[in-house]
């Protein structure tokens, strides 16, 4: 079992967490939306797997490279 880390590509605010812990996901699924530079930046999964942990909540500010969630693959 390997953990795939999803880090924030940019500094901004979490406006939507689109998955739950334990949920199975496929590459290309929407994971989270971060508002930054007045845009809703959708972060999609690069891998198939299961959400192992979610490290942020809605409305939270995040920095570039902050860990958002881990995916068990």
């Amino acid at each position: 079992m390997a953990g795939h880390q999803v880090n924030s590509p940019m500094t901004g605010q979490v406006i939507e967490v689109s998955v739950e812990v334990g949920q199975s996901i496929s590459a290309g699924d929407l994971l989270i939306v971060i508002e930054s530079m007045k845009m809703e930046n959708e972060i999609f999964s690069e891998v198939n797997g299961r959400i192992a942990s979610i490290e942020v909540v809605e409305d939270q500010n995040v920095s570039e490279e902050n860990l958002l969630m881990t995916i068990e693959i």
Binding site: P9, M10, M37, N41
Partner: peptide
């Protein structure tokens, strides 16, 4: 590319 860092 507005899908990447809002195109900034």
């Amino acid at each position: 590319d507005p899908m990447f860092m809002a195109g900034a």
